[in-house]
Computed example of a mutant assay.
Amino acid sequence: MSSSDIFIGEIIGTAVLILLGAGVVAAVVLKRSKAQGAGWVAIAFGWGFAVMTAVYISSPMSGAHLNPAVTLAIAIKSGDWSNFPLYIAGQLIGAMLGAFLAWLAYYGQFKAHLSDPEVVPPPLDEGLVDKKAAPKAGPVLGIFSTGPEIRNVWQNLVTEIIGTAVLVLAILTIGLNESGKGLGPLAGLYVAFVVAAIGFSLGGPTGYAINPARDLGPRIVHALLPMRNKGGSDWGYAWIPVVGPLIGSALAAGIYQIAFA
């Protein structure tokens, strides 16, 4: 694989991943969406099949890492770090592009949702507002990135570590990207169901980022987009879905080297 193939493949693949993943959350959450209220099952399967679609599209070009945690584990396993920065750059750019495209696709729904007084109540008299008590996450941030149901730093971090370790260990043990020539015909489907399983079983506490680019790129886009009443981007939490998956990835790579290599 050439450097340009890796870079472009990761941009395209990660953009498709986030477009479809953020898209299913937008479909379930936003007002005036035909799928509003479809629930967690739709989100978990939607993200799983988003991964599958992105894997099959990008595998011939880049090997379909789509996730800095996967790239880190493969680098630890192989000892080859030469393309590590290229993969990360492509993934982050792709994640930002996918989030932007999801916003475009649901532009009218975002506007309707953020103008609904049930979602965004009118501001209190300025003298009564405690600015320090302002919400850390806006009403549509969950479409772009993850956040905890219970804000406990150690629990949230451990949840992301565990979820990512499961994902990465599953990927390493099926030999994903081992040959550098793409995936077998069932590997992408297998990974899709692993992601869905993680969503069902471990997604409740934090929303299962399990991918630093998937969380950070769209969070940056949320911060930049001109959406009225969008609220905060919760930067105080943003390090957890980056650091947690990277720790989980390194842990999974170590387990693989000890138990399977």
Rank of each mutant, 00 (worst) to 15 (best):
2 S>E: 10
3 S>K: 14
3 S>A: 12
5 D>G: 06
10 E>S: 07
15 A>S: 12
17 L>G: 02
19 L>Y: 08
20 L>S: 04
20 L>V: 03
21 G>M: 04
21 G>Q: 03
23 G>W: 00
24 V>W: 12
26 A>G: 13
32 R>Q: 12
34 K>D: 13
39 G>V: 05
39 G>K: 10
50 A>R: 01
53 T>H: 06
54 A>P: 02
56 Y>A: 00
61 M>T: 04
65 H>R: 11
65 H>I: 00
66 L>N: 02
67 N>R: 08
69 A>T: 05
71 T>H: 05
71 T>R: 01
73 A>S: 15
77 K>S: 11
80 D>I: 15
82 S>N: 14
82 S>D: 15
82 S>P: 11
83 N>Y: 14
87 Y>P: 12
89 A>H: 05
91 Q>D: 06
92 L>D: 02
97 L>T: 14
99 A>D: 02
100 F>Y: 14
104 L>V: 15
105 A>T: 13
106 Y>G: 00
107 Y>N: 15
114 L>W: 01
114 L>N: 07
115 S>E: 07
115 S>F: 03
117 P>E: 09
119 V>G: 05
120 V>P: 02
120 V>A: 07
122 P>W: 10
124 L>T: 05
127 G>M: 09
128 L>V: 05
129 V>E: 09
134 A>M: 13
135 P>R: 06
136 K>R: 14
137 A>P: 09
138 G>D: 06
139 P>Q: 10
139 P>W: 07
144 F>P: 01
145 S>I: 04
146 T>N: 06
148 P>E: 14
148 P>M: 13
150 I>D: 11
151 R>N: 14
153 V>C: 10
154 W>G: 09
157 L>F: 15
158 V>I: 14
162 I>S: 08
162 I>V: 15
162 I>E: 07
169 L>P: 00
171 I>H: 00
174 I>W: 10
175 G>T: 02
176 L>C: 04
183 L>F: 05
184 G>R: 13
186 L>Q: 10
187 A>W: 00
187 A>R: 01
189 L>C: 11
192 A>I: 03
193 F>S: 07
195 V>E: 01
195 V>S: 01
196 A>L: 10
196 A>R: 01
197 A>W: 13
201 S>F: 13
202 L>S: 04
202 L>V: 04
204 G>R: 07
204 G>S: 08
204 G>I: 10
206 T>C: 04
206 T>Y: 05
217 G>V: 01
223 A>L: 11
224 L>D: 08
228 R>G: 12
228 R>L: 12
230 K>P: 03
231 G>N: 13
231 G>I: 04
241 P>W: 00
244 G>R: 00
245 P>V: 05
255 I>H: 08
256 Y>Q: 04
256 Y>N: 13
256 Y>R: 03
256 Y>W: 14
257 Q>R: 09
